[in-house]
């Protein structure tokens, strides 16, 4: 029991760990809201990895251009913060655009040619990842250093930690907000209603005159853009530079979270926290050399197995909860 408590409570043993957990959950939340968005619109976005990666690279690039660096210096030396804000916003917009574009292409291919977005988004991602790897290792690398990463962005562009020394920053709240807005969009607007109807009942949506093809494209584009947001905040909030392989695994985790959350953006919030908690607990267990990588992989595998299973216990629990509420 002691060992279990150590594993389970590890992430809450210090502000540093807890903050990092929240930060990780926040990034996952952006991406998995995106994944959920695609699932809701009836598409499968398997290109999340490249969408995050490309947006992160774009962000890092914009924020390390000479003029952005100059703007940051100006803001840092007590001058006007305007130019720095401009570059920050520009980077965000371009990151959204980059992610969105990588979602748009498979969406458009599906709408126009009927090509399965499941495959095209994966292939697009697989084709782009080496290119981004190359850019980071080659032309865009910080020449003076041995890191396989772009130059670090200026202090003025970095989001402040809310739980120092951890990485946790405002992006976590923005992620919760984004997921909530996405949920509200789906349940409280006509466009969201049409999107989810087109996702669950495509033929009916077509019959009812909804622009199904446009919805497909929009769903994939929004999904890509939300992944892009994850990439953006990964740079300005967490890593401050684009490392090679920065997104590896994030796209798949996001998809798994969206599935665990049954495509519901609101449920993405607890699911991301749960997922980040499992990952952090595993990481901490490895770092304190309690367990090896292998056992954490097995633990995670087993959790994946059970996470969506409808076990008899679940039914009983539900019944108990219901009885309690009735009382």
């Amino acid at each position: 029991m002691n060992a279990f408590a150590e594993f389970a409570l590890g992430p809450f043993s210090s502000l540093w760990h807890a903050g990092n957990l929240l930060d990780k959950a926040g990034l996952l939340m952006f991406a998995s809201t995106g994944a959920a968005f695609a699932l809701k619109s009836g598409t499968f976005n398997l290109g999340g990895e490249a969408q995050i990666y490309a947006s992160a690279l774009v962000t890092a690039m914009i924020l390390s251009t000479p003029s952005a660096v100059a703007a940051a210096e100006l803001a840092g030396s007590g001058g006007s913060a305007g130019p720095a804000l401009f570059f920050f916003a520009l980077a965000c917009a371009l990151a959204l655009a980059a992610g969105g574009l990588l979602g748009f292409i498979p969406g458009e291919l599906k709408a126009r040619f009927g090509a399965s977005e499941l495959l095209t988004s994966f292939l697009l991602s697989a084709a782009l990842l080496p290119v981004i790897d190359f850019l980071i290792a080659g032309p865009l690398r910080d020449e003076g250093k041995n890191l396989l990463a772009t130059p670090a962005i200026a202090d003025a562009f970095r989001m402040r930690s809310l739980l120092p020394p951890s990485l946790m920053n405002a992006s976590f709240f923005l992620a919760c907000g984004t997921a909530t807005v996405a949920a509200l969009f789906l349940s409280r607007t006509r466009a969201g209603y049409r999107l989810s109807v087109a996702g669950t009942a495509p033929e009916f949506a077509r019959f009812a005159g909804f622009p199904v093809k446009r919805i497909t494209v929009a769903g994939m584009t929004a999904s890509g853009a939300l992944h892009g947001l994850a990439g953006f905040f990964a740079i300005v909030g967490t890593w401050f530079m684009c490392h090679q392989g920065l997104s590896s695994g994030m796209g798949w985790s996001a998809l798994a979270i969206a599935l665990i959350a049954r495509h519901n953006p609101l449920a993405v919030i607890p699911a991301s926290l749960l997922y980040a908690w499992i990952e952090s607990a595993s990481d901490i267990a490895v770092l304190s050399s309690r367990v090896s990588f292998d056992s954490t992989a097995i633990v995670q595998g087993v959790i994946f197995l059970f996470i969506s299973a409808k076990l008899p216990i679940a039914g009983q629990l539900r019944a108990v909860l219901k009885k309690r509420r009735a009382r």
Binding site: F4, L274, A281, R290, V291, V299
Partner: peptide, 12 residues
């Protein structure tokens, strides 16, 4: 998760 973790950590 709790149950599974107990198993795995007790191994460790």
């Amino acid at each position: 998760t709790a149950a599974v973790s107990i198993l795995s950590v007790s191994c460790a």
